[in-house]
Amino acid sequence: MRMLSRRGFSHTKPQPQDVYSLASNKKHATTQAALFSLLSLFSVAAFSTEPAPSSVTDGPYVFLDQGHENTAYWICQSQLKQTQIAANQLARPADCGNLPQPKRHTDAPKVEADTYTHAGKIVALSDVHGQFDVMINLLKAHKIIDANNRWAFGDGHMVMTGDMFDRGHQVNEVLWFLYTLDKEAQTAGGRLHLLMGNHEQMVFRGDLRYINERYKTSAELLNRRYDALYNKDTEIGRWLRSKNTLVKINNLLFMHGGISPEWIERKLNISDANQLFRQHLDDKKEDLKQNDLLNFLFFTNGPTWYRGYFKDALAEPDIDQILNYFKVDHIIVGHTSQDRVLGLYHNKIIAIDSSIKDGKSGELLLIDDDKLTRGLYKGEQVPL
C-alpha cells in the first residue's frame, strides 16, 4: 500500500497485522464498518480512557522483519512517514518535533552479566512509566547525565528496576534514551542495568490495559498492535529481551518487585531465573500458569510482582534469611509506590518507586561506599 506524506514523497506502509488494517475502497464499506466496530470494542479494553489527542507525534520505530530493517517509521502530526537508516543513524523528518534521533548500535542484543563486584558509585530509580521529562530532570539534577542528556556518571552503575512502559505519554522517548545511554555508559566504563518489570512483561504478552491513548493512534497508523511495535523483530524489542530481571552489584540485590520466601524454598539462583525470564517473556499467560516454576517466577510471589515487604507479611528474621541466601546487605525494589525513596527493616529493604509515574516529581537512590542517599527532585541529597 503506497501513501503520500505531507512532504510529498511516497512511501510503503508496513503490512497489516491486526484489526487496525481497515479497507479503504468503497466496495469494502461493509467490512470496514464491521472492523471499526470491532476496533471500538477492542479499544475500550485495551487502551486508556483518556480523550484521543488531536495530533500525535511519535517514533521512531524500527522493524527488523525482511523489507523494513533499514527503515525508520515516524508519526508526524498524525501522519505516517519513513526515513532510510544510513550508517545506523535514525534521522527524523523535518516536521516531526523533537523526537529522538538515536544511532543504532550493533551490540544492543548482547546479554550482559548479572553479578558485579567492586563496582563504585551506583544510582537507582524505578517505575518511570513514560514520564520522560521527570526522569531527565531528575538525572540531570544529580549529574547522572549532562545538559545534552549524555552519560556523565563515568564508571558508575545505573539501575532502572523496571516499568518503563504504560501509563505515561512518552514511553518511546524513555526507551530510546535508555537504549542510547546503555551504549554511552559502557563506552565510559560504566553500566546501565535495565531490569524487566511486570509492565514490560504485560505488554510483551499483549496485555494493553494501561497504555496511553497516544499509542492507539501510533498503532493504527503503523497497522500493528501496540505490543507488535516492540516484539522480538524490532530494534527496541530485541534489545529489551536481552536484559536481566535481577542483578547483584556488590552487596546489593536489585529487582522490580521483591524476593519472597518461596524463592528460597525453591533454591533458585539469579542466573537461572534471568535465563528463564528471557526465554519466556513472550509466552501466553495461560501457558505460564500451567508450569509450576514459571507460574511462580512471572506472577504474585515472583520477583516482578511481589509486594510482601509492604504488607507486614514478613518479620525481620525472614528478611535476614533472604539476605543471607544471596549474601547481600540490601534488597532494592520498585513496583510499590511511595512518595519518596524509603528504607524498611532498618534499610535492609529499600523501596525506590517514588511515584515518578504521576508526572510531577520523583527521587532516586545514590550509593557510594555503602553510604545510602536519597536524591531529591531538585538535586538535594538527604541520607536515607
Rank of each mutant, 00 (worst) to 15 (best):
S260G: 09
I236W: 00
A273H: 10
K267V: 13
R307E: 11
L229T: 02
K267F: 13
L268E: 05
N231K: 02
S218E: 05
I319G: 07
I249W: 13
Q321W: 14
I249D: 10
R238P: 11
V247M: 06
A228I: 07
L222A: 01
N250W: 06
Q279L: 07
L222G: 05
F254T: 00
I264H: 09
I322D: 10
Y309I: 08
L323D: 10
D292Y: 08
T304S: 05
S260F: 05
D312C: 10
D283V: 03
P303F: 07
D282Q: 09
N212D: 09
S242R: 04
E265G: 15
I331N: 11
W239Q: 11
F277H: 03
S242Y: 00
Y306K: 05
F310M: 15
N291C: 05
D318H: 13
K243F: 01
L268P: 02
L222S: 04
N274D: 08
K243C: 04
K216P: 03
T336H: 12
Y210H: 04
D272K: 09
Q290N: 11
N295G: 01
D292K: 07
D272Q: 12
R214N: 07
V333P: 04
G308M: 11
N250P: 03
F296K: 04
R266S: 03
T245P: 04
D272C: 06
V247K: 06
R307A: 11
N269V: 10
R307Q: 13
S242W: 02
I259C: 04
H256F: 01
E262K: 13
T217R: 02
Q279E: 07
K243Q: 11
W305G: 02
F277P: 08
W305S: 06
K284S: 09
A273L: 08
A313G: 13
R225W: 04
A313F: 14
I249Q: 12
L281F: 08
L314T: 08
E262T: 13
I259Q: 00
H280P: 00
L252F: 15
W263N: 05
K285Q: 06
K267W: 14
I322R: 12
R307F: 04
I249A: 06
H335F: 02
N251F: 05
R209W: 03
I319H: 09
H280A: 07
L323F: 08
F254L: 06
L240C: 03
I249S: 09
P261H: 05
N223W: 14
E262G: 01
F277W: 05
N291G: 06
G334H: 12
T234Q: 07
E265D: 15
V247D: 00
K267M: 14
D207G: 03
A273M: 11
L268Q: 02
I249P: 13
N250Q: 12
I332T: 12
R225P: 11
